[in-house]
Design a protein around this nucleic acid. Structure first.
Length: 661
DNA sequence: TTAGGGTTAG
């Protein structure tokens, strides 16, 4: 007979665990007069769920009468927390496992993409059940081995709705939409998951119409179905349709909110994204990790450092301090706001780091021109045994490019396939064209474009055009520009780049011609503006700004600064301006570029000793870049400027970009 | 212990 007292204690402990109140659970457990195996097992699985693997192990070791549930609990603790090798040790230490445990171990391998280990275990299994088969089938399907999945599917002794749905989404995820649809049509039974998988697949391949038709024909719609539609519309750029579905849906959960926030955030509707984030909390919905992640990403995109810090505080309070997605979003936010120190703090504080965490650090340092730091992180990553992926290599190559480590970059590029198993893709070739071009090795950059195993795209020609501008090779620049205009006739940034190149060679007739072409084609130069956040208020400036309330103070200060700069040896680079006007007027226009206005405003309003963080929507102009170097020395300020391409840290008269951008 | 919806790096 079970002790009635013990049973009610167990029930209470389970209640605490459901509310994730571990300490209350532990207290009850400690004060129990008699514990049975259920009590011990409850505690083991509670620790497992909260990621406290060591405590789970200790509890397991102390459990007097272990049953199969105790063993499975500890196994799950290891598997769920990614400690597969510990799980395997435990698994091998006990010959009496049930199918559930075999399946758990196999699923763990599958989740970590260790298909070989999964298959070996599957082959050794004495009695496979349908879940074992399904785990293997979906494992292969989701890892791109659709042929193997299909083969297992054919020979599997039983098939249920899981099996069929795994095949549908497997085909869909591998871009085989016709097969996916065929399997979907053939399925003997479909549930809402099967429908949602098919709808989501259509959405992901851009077939919004087919997705909508299925959604409308579907009778077993659940929240996920609606969420799929919200996400699909948002990702197709149909943000209004997404909002309509979001408003129409009969019930929302935290995923619905997160999907809508992400939609706004990714479509550039930052205000709406942040507003919805706040509304989510007010509506009593528990703000989940993904909403935090999206909101952080919005702050990063707009360089709203203060807002980002507030979110950081809120998410720590909400208990979301750990975890890869949130942590990675924090790192990225701090980098994008120009705060390298806080980015690396956030990185250090993460208990578990995934490949994205490392990639974010490498790319972050690279964008700031801290190439050596980026490469140090890359070395640490390899020391820790984390396998670099294609994004890692983009970061590494651009770190080399932005720091002038040309030979190192070439060496990484040549060995990346052999050493890291990452074969060069278009992005890597773009990095290399940029790297060679910046270094003035234009012929090699051209040769690379010619001999690549893929067609060059506009970004690659853009890298070559940028390099031609820096090294004043207008012939090559023209060739690159021609290609770009063929592919992207409305890319105004490239017209400006080309025009600047003509201007710096004083080819004013060509500048004029180009301006005429731009007019004819209706290409508008995007107006440049810069902004700076002071005391939680964003101040933005355009060239020759006459709107800002403190404009007189700013202009007077700039005049003063100009004198000091000239004394220190500054020459205004009148050659870089777009228009062919009188020298004096050119100088006048340059003096009041938006980035200079924002810097001047910052010096006047940010307490001495604190860095200035200025953002510009376009690339920084050469004259401003030169001037801000002088200003950083004269005013003894760290000035961090984010332009559309990268970061510049101006300090003591020089810039972290080493004058290449 | 298996299938679907949200989030991070470029």
């Amino acid at each position: 007979m079970p002790d009635r007292d013990t049973v009610s204690y167990n029930t209470m402990i389970q209640g605490c665990v459901r509310n994730r109140n571990l300490s209350a659970a532990r207290q009850l457990f400690d004060e129990m007069p008699h514990r049975d195996t259920v009590s011990w097992n409850t505690l083991i699985s509670a620790y497992a769920e909260c990621g406290r693997v060591e405590l789970a192990r200790q509890t397991f070791d102390a459990t007097p009468n272990k049953n199969s549930i105790s063993w499975n609990g500890l196994l799950a603790a290891y598997v769920q927390n990614g400690r597969l090798d510990d799980a395997r040790k435990l698994f091998d230490s006990n010959p009496h496992w049930e199918a559930v445990s075999w399946n758990a171990m196999i699923a763990g391998y599958v989740r970590r993409k260790r298909l070989v280990d999964a298959q070996l275990l599957f082959d050794r299994m004495p009695r496979r059940d349908i879940i074992s088969w399904n785990t293997m089938i979906s494992g292969y399907a989701q890892n791109g081995d659709i042929a193997e999945a299909r083969q297992l599917f054919e020979i599997s002794p039983n098939k249920d709705v899981f099996t069929w749905t795994a095949m549908v989404s497997g085909y869909a995820q591998n871009g085989m939409m016709e097969e996916a649809r065929r399997v979907f049509n053939e399925m003997p039974d479909r549930n809402s998951v099967s429908w949602n998988a098919m709808i989501g697949a259509y959405m992901q391949c851009g077939n919004v119409g087919e997705a909508r038709q299925l959604f409308e024909a579907m009778r077993c719609r659940n929240i996920s179905s609606w969420n799929t539609m919200v996400t699909g519309y948002a990702q197709a750029g149909m943000i209004e349709d997404a909002r309509r579905v979001f408003d129409e849906m009969p019930q929302r959960d935290s995923v619905s909110w997160a999907a809508m926030i992400a939609g706004y955030s990714q479509s550039g509707f930052s205000e709406e994204a942040l507003r919805l984030f706040l509304e989510m909390g007010r509506n009593g919905e528990r703000v989940n990790r993904s909403s935090f992640t999206c909101a952080l990403s919005t702050c990063g995109d707009n360089a709203m450092l203060e807002c980002g810090k507030q979110l950081h505080g809120r998410l720590v309070k909400a208990g979301y301090g750990l975890g890869c997605f949130v942590g990675n979003a924090l790192i990225a936010m701090y980098f994008k706001c120009g705060s390298i120190d806080e980015a690396s703090m956030a990185f250090k504080e993460m208990k578990e780091k995934d490949v994205v965490s490392w990639n974010t650090m490498i790319a972050g340092y690279a964008r700031h021109g801290f190439g050596n730091e980026a490469l140090q992180v890359f070395d640490q990553m390899r020391t820790k045994g984390i396998k670099p992926d294609d994004v890692t290599m983009v970061g590494v190559l651009s770190a080399c490019g932005h720091t002038g480590l040309v030979d190192k970059g070439i060496a990484y590029f040549n060995s990346m396939h052999k050493e890291f198993g990452v074969s060069p893709k278009a992005e890597h070739y773009t990095c290399m064209i940029d790297l060679l071009g910046r270094a003035g090795r234009l012929a090699e950059a051209q040769a690379l474009i010619r001999d690549m195993p893929m067609e060059p795209d506009a970004t690659m020609w853009g890298a070559l055009l940028g390099a031609s501008r820096i090294h004043k090779n207008s012939k090559l620049g023209e060739k690159a520009a021609e290609k770009i205009f063929e592919m992207e006739p409305e890319n105004s940034g490239m017209y400006v780049l080309l025009s600047n190149m003509y201007a710096s060679s004083k080819k004013w007739t060509d500048v004029g011609k180009l301006r005429k072409i731009m007019q004819e084609r209706g290409v508008k130069k995007v107006p440049g503006f810069s902004w700076i956040e002071v005391k939680n208020v964003v101040h933005s400036f355009s060239v020759g700004d006459l709107v800002h309330p403190e404009k007189e103070k700013i202009y007077a200060f700039l005049e003063e600064l100009d004198m000091k700069m000239k004394t220190a040896g500054y020459l205004s680079a009148t050659e870089m301006i777009l228009h062919d006007v009188e020298e004096e007027e050119k100088e006048h226009l340059l003096k009041y570029h938006s980035e200079k206005l924002a810097v001047a405003f910052g010096i006047l309003n940010v307490p001495p000793g604190r860095p200035l963080r200025v953002i510009k929507n376009l690339r920084v102009c050469q004259d401003c870049h030169n001037a801000i170097k002088y200003i950083s020395a004269i005013e003894d300020r760290l000035i961090i400027l984010r332009d559309s391409n990268r970061f510049h840290h101006f300090n003591g008269g020089s810039c972290s970009c080493g004058d290449y951008w």
